[in-house]
Computed example of a mutant assay.
Amino acid sequence: MTALEAVSAYLPPERVPIDSLAGELGLTDTQVRMFRRYYGLAEVLREPTGTITDLMLNAAAKLSELRGRESQVRYVVQARTLQAIAPYPEDPLHDVVRALGLRHARAFAVTQHACASGLLAVEMAGRLLAEDGEPGALALVFVGEKAFTPSARMIPGTALMGEGCAAVLVGTGRRDRLLSYASATHGEFNAGLSLTAQMSLEFQQRYPDALAEVILAAVARAGITVADLDVVLPHNVNRVSWVRVARNVGIPVERLFLDNMPVTGHCFCADSFLNYVAARELGRLRPGDRYLMAAVGLGSTFAAAVFEH
C-alpha cells in the first residue's frame, strides 16, 4: 500500500509582507486589503538568492530518513505547476539527482495537474513501486517551485504565490498510508489564467462544488465519512474559499489546518505537504488519525487524498 515514509519541509528565511508586493504585482490598496482581511493572507515566502535546485536540495537535506537508503530509491519525481521552471538548457531535477547520488533512479516531472500534481505524483509513485514489487524500494517526490516570472507570483483575485518546498519519501509500508485518491479535470477551463471574464466567473461559481465533489469521492473510497476526518490539510489559496467548501461538505472549520496560510502564501504543489509537517510538529496529527489533503490546479484539476497517520 502506498505510504508516506517521511516528509520534510524547507521554508525560506525571507517572509515578504503582501503590502510590499503591491507595486510588483500591480495591486491597488483595495486589493491588498482584500487579500489581507478577507482572504487571510499576510506574508509570502521568498528564497531571495536561491534557485529551484537550491529549494529541492534544502528540502532533501532535512529528509533524514533518506540518508543511507539512497540505493533503495527507484524513482525521483518533481511534481510542479509550471512547465518551464528554469532557462534552457538548465535541468534542475537532474542536477538534484546527481547531487544526491541518485543517478541510478528514473527521474521525471509531472505537470499535467498543475498545483494538484503533488497528489498525483505521490499516488503514481505508489503505483509504480507496487507494480515493480521490489521490497523496500522507494520514490522521492519534490513539490514546490520558484515564483520566477511575474505571472507565476499571483493568481489574480485568488492567491499570492510563495516559494516553500517539500521532499516526500514514498514507500509501500504502513506509515501514513494512502487510503484513497480522487481527481477530476474540468477541461473547459483549460485556459487557466487566460480565461475570458465570463469563463473565469463560471469557474469561480463551480469551484466550491467541484472541490467538494472530489473530497466526498476520496472520503467514500476510503470507506469513511467526512465526520471521520480528524484534520484537513488544504492547499493555501485563501481562507474564505476553504471555509465555504468545508461548510458545504460538513467538515467543521476547526478541523481545517490554516496555520500556514497567512505566512507562506500558496506554494504551488507543496502546500498540503508543508501543512503536514507543521501539523505533525504541533501535535495536530496523532497515530490513527485520518487526514485529507486537497488541491486544485488551474486548467483545471481538482484532487483529494485520504491518509491514515
Score class of each variant (00 low, 15 high):
Glu70Met: 06
Glu70Gly: 04
Ser71Gly: 15
Gln72Ser: 14
Gln72Asp: 08
Arg74Met: 05
Tyr75Cys: 02
Val76Phe: 01
Val77Ala: 02
Val77Arg: 04
Gln78Thr: 09
Gln78Leu: 15
Arg80Lys: 14
Arg80His: 10
Gln83Thr: 11
Ala84Ser: 08
Ala84Leu: 12
Ala86Gly: 05
Ala86Arg: 00
Tyr88Gly: 11
Asp91Ser: 13
Pro92Cys: 08
Asp95Gly: 06
Val96His: 04
Val96Asn: 01
Val97Asn: 00
Ala99Ser: 14
Leu100Glu: 04
Gly101Ser: 05
Leu102Cys: 12
Arg106Asp: 14
Ala107Phe: 09
Ala109Asp: 06
Thr111Trp: 11
Ala116Trp: 00
Ser117Gly: 06
Leu120Val: 14
Ala121Asn: 07
Ala121Gln: 04
Val122Leu: 06
Val122Thr: 02
Glu123Tyr: 13
Met124Cys: 11
Met124Gln: 08
Met124His: 12
Ala125Leu: 02
Arg127Asn: 13
Arg127Asp: 09
Arg127Met: 12
Arg127Ser: 10
Leu128Phe: 13
Leu129Cys: 11
Leu129Gly: 02
Leu129Pro: 01
Leu129Met: 06
Glu131Ala: 08
Asp132Leu: 09
Asp132Phe: 08
Gly133Asp: 08
Gly133Ile: 08
Glu134Trp: 12
Glu134Lys: 14
Glu134Ile: 15
Gly136Ser: 09
Leu138Phe: 05
Leu138Pro: 03
Leu140Lys: 05
Leu140Arg: 14
Val141Pro: 03
Val143Tyr: 01
Gly144Phe: 06
Glu145Ile: 04
Glu145Cys: 04
Lys146Ile: 07
Ala147His: 04
Ala147Trp: 01
Ala147Cys: 09
Phe148Leu: 15
Phe148Lys: 04
Pro150Val: 11
Pro150Asn: 06
Ser151Leu: 12
Arg153Leu: 03
Arg153Pro: 03
Met154Val: 13
Ile155Phe: 10
Ile155Gly: 03
Pro156Arg: 12
Thr158Met: 12
Thr158Ala: 12
Ala159Cys: 10
Gly162Phe: 00
Gly162Val: 00
Cys165Trp: 02
Ala166Arg: 02
Ala167Ser: 09
Val168Trp: 02
Leu169Met: 08
Val170Phe: 00
Thr172Asn: 05
Leu179Ala: 10
Leu179Tyr: 01
Tyr181Leu: 05
Ser183Lys: 09
Ala184Thr: 11
Thr185His: 13
Phe189Val: 10
Phe189Pro: 01
Asn190Trp: 15
Asn190Arg: 09
Ala191Lys: 07
Leu193Gly: 08
Leu195Gln: 04
Leu195Gly: 03
Ala197Glu: 15
Ser200His: 10
Ser200Cys: 11
Ser200Glu: 11
Glu202Asn: 13
Glu202Lys: 08
Phe203Ile: 12
Gln204Ile: 09
Gln204Ser: 10
Gln205Phe: 12
Leu211Ala: 06
Leu211Pro: 00
Leu211Glu: 07
Leu211Met: 07
Ala212Gly: 13
